[in-house]
Design a protein around this nucleic acid. Structure first.
Lengths: 121, 121
DNA sequence: TCAAGTAAGCACAAATTTGTAAGCTAGTTC
DNA sequence: GAACTAGCTTACAAATTTGTGCTTACTTGA
């Protein structure tokens, strides 16, 4: 897991291994990762296509998040040695298992938005 | 939603309402919220009890996160006018719907940890 | 010769999140 | 009347995350 590369083993165990939730959030937390996974749910996408689908993400963040997802086993990255370069990203079996969860979260998000609106009115 | 209190309506819509995932992450993202919700899954807990169950959280963060969860409709906060003070937190119908999702995330977290171990070996 | 196209890298700055340490409250007990 | 209690607050500091702007590499077409 990218986040823990520099940690002592002991510290690593206190952090992630003790609590599965913490380890989950290390992997899909942050501002962009679930959104990226959401878009990769059912398509193989190139870097530029992901950028179009997530207009507000910066190039740097997209690169960075994709690399972390890759090293956590959630996406594969395929580089085609062409010019101009072509790089494709796709989900893995591990992230496929996340799919129903992401869908449920998405549905729940709608409900939550409704709640917010009812409070704001 | 606490995060958006200061935003213009327009900006709010671009952020959360456009993408349910973003709105979900606003609500359960961060280092502690799912963990708190996890512990409130099936018990009503006092502030101090939550602290014991989440040893590494600081008082400030626990207060802060609970208040945000409250204003997002995910926990209720009941103050008993006693001395010393007693405050109880419990889940709401809205966060109860999150429960199966949290359970699934938890299971998935185990798998993910196994993957990590197999890569680190 | 020069721009366009694609995926990235870097140094640095801004923003956000989290942590530390102290203080406050108002009754209750010693 | 000092100490204790549970929950909270505030000012400030540190850490982490995210964003900005500029640069690289290579080829094609104008």
């Amino acid at each position: 897991m990218s986040k823990n590369n520099g940690l002592e083993k002991e510290e690593f165990e206190n952090n992630s291994q003790a609590c599965p939730m913490t380890s989950v959030m290390n992997v899909i937390g942050g501002k962009w990762k679930v959104i990226i996974l959401y878009h990769l749910r059912d398509s193989i996408l190139r870097f530029g296509e992901l950028r179009k689908r997530i207009p507000k993400i910066t190039q740097k963040m997209l690169t960075q998040q994709l690399r972390e997802l890759e090293s956590d086993g959630l996406v594969t990255r395929t580089v085609y040695p062409e010019v101009p370069p072509r790089v494709e990203y796709q989900s893995t079996p591990l992230s496929d298992e996340l799919r129903p969860i992401i869908d449920m979260l998405c549905d729940w998000g709608q409900k939550q938005q409704d709640y917010i609106r009812s409070v704001d009115e």
